[in-house]
């Protein structure tokens, strides 16, 4: 009898643990840091500079100051992403339209979401080969 109770309690614990794992592991929704980086380059290549603002951390020092003129000067599209690494910071090895290569590094604010709240990552800084182009 005692063994059966112990088994029952153990089963409940396992079931709760499994439920927590499922909830925690569910697709959180919202963009991951690497998703944001892909969207960033996609919009830059398409000339959709207005969209970029929505990926940026509004508390960043230059958030209000950067505009289309700024991005057109600071970037060198068309970008081909050769590799992305890291979950934040994210390092992007890219080739530019001029055939030159460079490495971008993105840092982020925000956190990964869960079943109830989507991820809320925003780009906090961007550097191109050591030059900080957004902070």
């Amino acid at each position: 009898m005692k063994a059966r109770k112990t088994l029952s309690a153990l089963t409940r614990i396992i079931a709760i643990a499994a439920l927590v794992a499922v909830i925690g592991g569910c697709a959180a929704g919202g963009d991951s840091p690497q998703d944001l980086v892909r969207r960033f380059f996609s919009d830059v290549n398409a000339g959709n500079y207005d969209n970029i603002t929505s990926y940026l951390d509004s508390s960043a020092q230059n958030y209000n100051q950067v505009n289309q003129t700024y991005w057109e000067n600071a970037l060198n599209p068309d970008y081909t992403i050769n590799s992305l690494s890291g979950d934040g910071p994210v390092t992007a090895q890219v080739t530019e339209g001029t055939g030159t290569d460079t490495t971008f590094e993105f840092t982020f604010s925000g956190s990964e979401g869960n079943m109830f709240n989507p991820s809320d990552y925003k780009i906090k800084t961007i550097s191109d080969g050591g030059s900080t182009i957004f902070q």
Binding site: N62, N64, Q65, V66, N67, T69, Y70, N73, A74, N76, E96, T98, G99, T100, D101, T102, D128, G129, S131, I133
Partner: peptide, 29 residues
């Protein structure tokens, strides 16, 4: 040569231009 020119000539000039944009925007905002 193209890569070197990009890293050593264009990037610093782009940084300098970017700084000027951020600065006039700073004063206007």
């Amino acid at each position: 040569e193209r890569q070197t020119y990009r890293d050593e000539t264009w990037r610093p000039l782009a940084d300098q231009t970017g700084a000027a944009i951020l600065n006039y925007r700073y004063h206007a905002l």
